[in-house]
Design a protein around this nucleic acid. Sequence first.
RNA 1: GCCGGUGUGGCGGAAUCGGCAGACGCGGCGCACUCAAACUGCGCUUCCGCGAGGAGUGUGGGUUCGAGUCCCACCACCGGCACCA
Length: 847
Amino acid sequence: MTDETYDFARIQQRWLPVWDRIRPFATDDETDARPRKYVLDMFPYPSGDLHMGHAESYAYGDVLARYWRQQGFNVLHPIGWDSFGLPAENAAIKRGADPAAWTAENIEQHKRSMRQYATAFDWDRILHTSDPAYYKWNQWLFLELYKAGLAYRKPSNVNWCPKDQTVLANEQVVAGACERCGTAVVKKKLTQWYFKIADYADRLLDDLNQLEGRWPDKVLRMQRNWIGRSVGAEVEFEIEGHHSRVPVFTTRPDTLYGATFMVVAPDSDLAAELASGASPEVRMRFQAYLEDVGRMTEIDRQNAERTKTGVDLGRFAIHPLTGERLPVWTADYVLADYGHGAVMAVPAHDQRDLDFARAFDLPVKVVVDTNAAVTGVLPMIPIDDEGNAIEPEGFAPLDPKATGEALTGDGRMMNSGELDGMSKQHAISRMVQLLEAKGVGRAAKSYRLRDWLVSRQRYWGTPIPIVHTADGQEVPVPFEQLPVTLPSSAGLDLTPKGTSPLGAAEDWVNVPSPIDGSPARRDADTMDTFVDSSWYFLRFLSPNDDTQPFDKAQVERWAPVDRYVGGVEHAILHLLYARFITKVLFDLGHVPFTEPFEALLNQGMVILDGAKMSKSKGNLVTLSEELEQYGVDAVRLAMSFAGPPEDDIDWKDVSPTGAQKFLARAWRLSKESLAKPGTDPKPGDRALRRETHRFLADAPGLVEALKFNVVVARLMELTNAARKAVDGAAGAADPAVREAVETIALGLSLFAPYTAEEMWANLGFEPSIANAGWRKADRSLLVQQTVTAVVQVNGKVRDRIEVAADVAADEFERLARELPGVARSIGDREVRQAIVRAPRLVNFVVG
RNA sequence: GCCGGUGUGGCGGAAUCGGCAGACGCGGCGCACUCAAACUGCGCUUCCGCGAGGAGUGUGGGUUCGAGUCCCACCACCGGCACCA
């Protein structure tokens, strides 16, 4: 192989050791006065080697990090590993590997691959979450929440994955199945640790407005839906023979007069209490029902087609306004952990209540006349082509019990005492006033978001830093004793069996109480790994500080993250948790901001033949093989050129060969350009200079708009223009050619670091091009003397004309009118109007 | 069911403001170089039509001098949530 052929393998070998020596992406200079940017890629889970998804994500993150660096910013772009979690543990169970050793090997493999992939990471700031030096601060964080009353333990019906034998957070249950393994999730009553994320629901929702335009709309919408704020009222009902009033939440307090029964969730404490006060027969039926419900998987439960089931508890609630006796039922369509676990059933105006009423022949009372015109709103009467009103065929009868259709729309209140005649909105506010005046209710909000279940019954995670004393007290492990390190996995049975394997590590679990030294036991559960990742972006700012989780001065220097890059699969998991923890840290005075990630880029997936790649489907594209065949730069460039970064990339549509050819074309230009470094480009070919400066002017806006594919296309255009100049009149010695090739190299430095560096060297510069700095566009070169104008007749293009850029409107119109194509098209018709947009367009309106 | 998104050549995609539809590339076709090929370079490539010309951004309508872009309705596909009261 000679020096005259583009040889990616040789170029890769040449530059890696150079970069290792000059560390182009170090950020350790405290005196660096440049403005700063923090670009962060979601850190990977270290299982196996990097795959195509990583390659895509890091290619994009690098474009941004390298771009800001060229723009004169001091850019922090660190990497680490989210190294706790199930895969390491499962590998341990399957192959008898030590999770710590398995993890360390994978991290080393990742590091090698990332280095080869030429990611612009600062290698002095790496971290991994299974490092005691990291999870010490995870435990610190847990205790901060605990002290603030934001971490607590409670017994509850939790999501349980029967395969992984562990609890799951709500966010980890997807369509009723375990997010990880796809097994149908069941409910299990367990005492578990929670973080009070629901207390932050309003802030998590409202602060999304700040992120508008900088986070993808899709993610904002998903978070809003997930938090699921509903506005309505709380209404209190007496229950005969029950010690206290029972509150229910409703979004339709206006329909309170239509409530004909009450339903409580079978797995709620209230249901158990009410059943215990009922007849022996009811108690038996309730027990049987509760067991049926408990056996059901989440997938079955979520089936909306399912017919309604339930049990009459034989108890009666008292309607707070009418004093009517309403039967109390229990049914699994009411959820124990939403609102108050009980609802007032208004079958006439709620489809679920109606389905239930029809199944058990309960009364239905209409209180909103949805056929009546709404007060304060002009009724809309449809009209036919002649403008005559079309008389309605006749309204559907207001008889939901017969039709099976609940009347959920707006209308005029009826059968509702003082509310009669009002519209829905009016009636809602009036009813809230009434309830408040009578002391039996109030305006209220409810959320879909539940508290975050953070304990897990697995080995490979951060131990929860709590000790349980013999008399049942929870005692936080004192700070000086942190970290509570994991015991060695040697000798422990890690097979999932429903309780934490740590409980069997007798030497580890039995400790003296931190209070009085009496025998006590460590909490044997570990933390959800989403706790680890909820604050790691702060640890990068002072990754080796063993006195504090993060250095405040460094936080002020770098945080929050300016651009976060990662997959959309974290839209409501990691991203919600990190936002929550940031707000907690703000409230506790640890950070001066409330949102962790200023801007977010969700890259799409790399798929093959329209389907997600997977080993089992056999449609896997192996990154290392692609890199071997086409080289790092071609793969990176092909990723960036494939389409908008947020769209999925089907690898069958991608041509790394095409990318390679383009890189070779660009590289060849750097070998051919003859002008010496520093040659004044001013006398050079003007047309090529214009192309060069158009690129310099446009590329920054395109990068910032994340249109990487367009930037690459523009680089290809500039390369084609330079090729033509070399082969044409200008020739290889023209200084404009050198200027263009330098610009191509600079542009390529965002996408193809090896080739760019090689071109830079060919052009006679020292490494590293990554820090060479962007060139400023010369605006005067962008001004055109003449413009190709378009001439339309009735909006259709009929001809084109070259005109002076400053052509006067009347002159422009006259020239356009005389064009042969235009004259022919107009013929002898009269020109009624001419729209003139000098110097770009004339449109003659003829008729 | 609720919330939202997307429909542009054979394919991936481009088109700051309503103003040349299809940039750039893949694939295809052709030419030059070569004994031949590879490489490379150049040209053509939305559809119909020999051509002049006509049609064209999911479908139907509307606004406008002018619509891929704005408005209304519909169709198709995709995503999120899902008995959340």
